[in-house]
Nucleic acid binder design. Structure first.
Lengths: 338, 338
DNA sequence: CTCTCCTGTAGAAACGTTTTAGGAAAAACG
DNA sequence: CGTTTTTCCTAAAACGTTTCTACAGGAGAG
């Protein structure tokens, strides 16, 4: 009873005295129908507020006009908000909807993808948080379901992706620090194996090279991505015989950890020792002092991803496209002061 | 071509030698079918990986098994992430999907709601960021589409909602400050007119009452919800003849603004003057010092909202249900120290 | 003036389900 | 043993679209 009898194509047909198929044609393939008839139909459809039922349309079309997106398990509020906003808006521009899902109870994420595919619930996927050899990507390639990833994978050549050039990010960070007069720069990276993590480390080393600074292995430590680990890593660096005057980290939370350790030791971040982060997330923005960080242009990423996917769905050539977007260094107090 | 011929009910029918309708019955209404037949069907369906096509199912069922959610325009990353996670997970438990949308280009949000309804794209909505006299709520009531709001409205009696007891939150904050020995407590609220904002102010006044502290109108100032406004409001309070020893704010960002102003004046937040926020968002967590704040149990809210909505969709009694959930005061450095 | 082609429309089939209405066989009843 | 009920299954209709095929009538060609 809840459903207040919706307006169907039949209502428009009745209102105009023209057959259902003509209404459909008038709205979808205007060239096949007489101008006057078309006018009448469009007018009536407008007046009645007719919109084709999505489900009914999906059936004969063989398309759902829906894009699937799985909320990543590791929460990253900051990223998700902006990203989803952008993705949803762009999808809407292409008259597509976004279907949101999470790994279903007791299933792995890839199982959930499989479910969604079997249900024929979407036309394609946006996949974020990719790993080296991503199961989801393999599944999607196998089943030939269109998708675009945010982040590269080992199978990058055979699918569309958009990613941030993390190398360029840390390279720029190092250049900035060198400009501030730093020569002895430490790095806190993630354990080896993650694409973006390794990329950021590479950019760091390249930055040193460019500046003509030799690379001291004792200044490179690795830590899990949390505050405590950052703190510990910082402690390690600071206890070295020749401690660095600047510490680069591959993620803001690590930088916050570093600052915590500096505070404990009475060292002032910014004034006494430079610290930088990556991602330009709330921890960097709201930290005291605010942390110099590398901003990922999430708007551009979201836009491009949807553009790639929609293009593929519409044109259907299946030719992989990819784009590496340039991040931007946001300089704040934590790296200035001497 | 992309579509690798999906498995339909017909395939299961062929595989078992039983009619299509029997397959459907075996899967949906097990009691109408012989145990042995059912076993055969279930086995085959399982083996083939059959899942009913969503769109096809929606048609005769008159239900889409989808819940609509409009991403609020005012971005609030922290909230959105946790909330969406919860909502999506719970929806998935009820075998429902989430359809995400934003106000479409050049349309108001309520127009977009209307569109979604006309398309018959969802069974119901989750509505967040409600206002006093919410247009969306009116539309949904008019069209008799089921929905649950996160936040109260003036029409609260006629629809289901879940909200946080903001009054209880600021009341607890004041109690905490009084316990710390504060007697002269200032408040930075939002301009009058927002439900949750006014609620928080009320709680503040109630808190004073409970403690037997008189209410000095000069200690209550109002500001827009941004850092600069918080700073300015703090300045106003501090310049008073008899400045407060503690400042309560109705949102974390305002508290960050207060701390900025304190820093400028060489006053130490926590040690010299207590500051509190609301929402327990990243600004509070990553501020220095970390800010005492009122945490909204977003998980519980998300869970309850979906529960209410699904219940309504399933049972269809349309009886409004509501719940006011208790927030939790998270005490941090910014309110301790003397 | 007839034949062909084109234009514009309508009817019917199809998409993959669910559901309703029957119907045949088996079981229960008298 | 005949009648009624029950059990189990199937065929067909329906959901709201799109699309394919067919057909009528008018225009143009010969």
């Amino acid at each position: 009873m809840a459903v207040s009898s919706r307006i169907t194509i039949r209502d428009v047909s009745r209102a105009t005295g023209v057959s259902v198929s003509t209404v459909s044609n008038a709205l979808n393939a205007p060239e096949r129908v007489n101008a006057e008839t078309r006018r009448k139909v469009v007018e009536a459809a407008d007046r009645l507020g007719y919109r084709p039922n999505r489900a009914a349309r999906a059936l004969p079309k063989g398309r759902t006009f829906t894009i699937g997106y799985c909320i990543p398990a590791g929460r990253d509020g900051f990223f998700l908000d902006t990203f989803l906003h952008q993705v949803t808006e762009r999808a809407s521009d292409a008259d597509m909807d976004i279907l949101l899902f999470t790994a279903h109870r007791g299933q792995t994420e890839v199982d959930t993808f499989r479910e969604i595919i079997r249900r024929g619930a979407v036309d394609g996927f946006v996949v974020s948080g990719t790993t080296h050899d991503d199961e989801r990507v393999r599944l999607l390639l196998d089943t030939k379901v269109p998708f675009v990833t945010f982040g590269r994978t080992d199978l990058g050549a055979s699918h569309s992706w958009v990613d941030v050039d993390g190398r360029a990010g840390t390279r720029a960070t190092v250049a900035h620090l060198v400009e501030q007069g730093h020569r002895r720069i430490g790095l806190i990276g993630w354990p080896e194996g993650s694409i973006s993590g390794d990329d950021r480390v590479t950019g760091f080393l390249e930055g040193l090279d460019t500046a003509g600074i030799g690379h001291d292995p004792s200044l490179l430590v690795r830590a899990e991505n949390d505050l405590a680990a950052g703190r510990e890593a910082a402690s390690h660096l600071l206890d070295a015989d020749l401690p660095p005057s600047a510490i680069v980290t591959v993620q803001d939370v690590l930088a916050v950890g570093v600052i915590a350790e500096l505070n404990r030791r009475g060292i002032r971040a910014g004034a006494d020792l430079a610290v930088t982060g990556f991602d330009d997330s709330p921890p960097a923005i709201f930290s005291a002092p605010p942390i110099t960080s590398v901003r990922q242009p999430i708007e551009e990423i979201g836009r491009t991803i949807v553009e790639f996917l929609v293009h593929d769905l519409e044109v259907g050539d299946g030719i992989p496209r990819s784009e590496l977007v340039e991040p931007e260094l946001v300089v704040r107090e934590s790296s200035q002061g001497r």
